[in-house]
Amino acid sequence: MEVSLIIPMYNEEENIFITLEEVKKALKTYDSYQILAVDDGSNDRTLELLEEYATENPELKVLSHPVNMGMGKALRTGFEKAKGDVIITLDADLSYDPKYIKELIEELYENHLDIVIGSQYMAGGETEDIPFIRLFVSKMANRIVGYALNKNISTVTGILRAYRKEVIDSIEIESNGTEINPEILSKAIAIGYQVKEIPVKLKGRKLGESKVQFRSTTISHLLFTFYERPMILFGLIGLILSLIGIIIAIYLFYEYLMGTLDPTRPLMFVMVLMIISGIQILVFGFVATQISLLKREIYIIQKENKLMRKKLK
């Protein structure tokens, strides 16, 4: 068995040597492994230090982007060069202890799974020294996106994962940002791959600055949720509009009973507009949901096409 470990890096000069040494310790029990460090357009000494380390550590392969393109793009670059039967993805700041690598791989093989996720939010998982706002936003994002995936998964946005190479080879991955992690899960689940979580501890960053942009990350996860479950958005809007229209209708009916109803009042038009608009949006949401359900067939076709292209190379 060969293991490929991918570490996206952006301005991580303070963490490079510590992280790579810890990762090597975790991987030394495996006969064959490669470490793919992807420098995502850093403007510090990250790339220079990676190349320096690689001169004496041939198991490290350094990949780089000329400019910062996002964590998703960095992972995709790593996936393209990964040769292992198992692919591990890990943060550069040791927020997750590399000791979990072995646990992920054992779980993957012992239970014949396709993806194993390191989860800090499942029962038994922990967090330590995480700023309150970051923890709150992360928990809410995982809860919302987890609901959209319609699976009992507690941590859907985390990077600590083990994949069978077949999974990555059979999915058309498009995301460049942090939404890549739920995207992979969504497509893998739709195709029928088996996913499981194991409890881990997520620790706060010790060196360097966090690269997480809370606002953009939250927006991207919300958009992903609406894409996966359009009825969450359209159903809510449609119900609110319809409810407002019904409340207005009840009020107007009350005025009619009291003999004070004036048919020329604008409120009559507002009532009709609200009810019709609400129903139309609900119908649109239903149609969008049916289209969303067809994605599974599209992903299966993409899987077959991608695997066929690999065989023809």
Rank of each mutant, 00 (worst) to 15 (best):
I101A: 03
A288Y: 04
A26G: 02
I7L: 08
I101H: 06
F79Q: 01
Y254Q: 07
E179L: 05
E110N: 12
F286K: 08
A190T: 12
A54C: 06
I117N: 02
N68C: 09
T217D: 08
N142T: 04
T19F: 14
Y10H: 14
S42H: 00
I184P: 02
P66S: 12
I279V: 15
R296A: 09
E179D: 11
G235F: 04
L47G: 02
L75C: 11
Y193E: 10
K99E: 15
N152G: 01
L90E: 12
A288E: 08
L294A: 08
F284C: 05
L185T: 05
T217V: 06
G285F: 01
E59N: 07
S210V: 08
D114S: 14
L75G: 06
D39C: 04
I101M: 11
K99W: 10
N15Q: 14
F226H: 09
I35L: 13
I246F: 15
I168M: 02
A288S: 05
T289R: 07
R76Y: 01
Y163H: 12
I130Y: 03
S216Q: 07
G146P: 09
S42N: 00
Y147I: 10
L293V: 04
D97R: 08
N142D: 09
G118Y: 03
V116E: 03
G158D: 00
L27K: 04
L223F: 07
S210G: 09
I300M: 13
R205A: 04
N15Y: 01
M258Q: 15
V212D: 01
I300F: 12
R45V: 03
K196G: 03
D85A: 14
M140Y: 04
I173P: 09
E197M: 02
F284L: 13
K306E: 04
E51D: 05
L108E: 07
P131K: 05
S95I: 13
M268Q: 10
L202V: 15
D169N: 14
A148T: 10
T218V: 10
R309Q: 14
E13S: 15
Y96E: 13
T19H: 07
D44F: 06
S242Y: 06
I237M: 04
S210K: 05
Y254C: 01
Y53W: 10
P199L: 08
F214C: 01
P58H: 03
Y227Q: 13
D31H: 07
I16D: 06
D169F: 07
G204P: 06
R265H: 14
S95R: 12
E106I: 13
L312C: 09
I248D: 08
F286G: 05
I191E: 10
I246R: 01
G259N: 05
I184T: 08
I153V: 15
S277D: 02
D169W: 05
D114G: 02
F234E: 02
K295P: 01
Y147P: 00
G78I: 14
E228M: 14
M71Q: 12
A26D: 09
E52A: 08
I298G: 09
S154L: 03
S95D: 12
I279F: 14
D169P: 09
N181H: 11
N142Y: 04
R45A: 11
L20D: 06
F286A: 11
E103S: 13
T217P: 00
I298A: 13
K99H: 13
S42G: 02
L60Q: 00
L223M: 13
L233E: 03
L36V: 13
F234L: 15
G72E: 08
L294R: 12
I153Y: 12
I16G: 04
L5K: 03
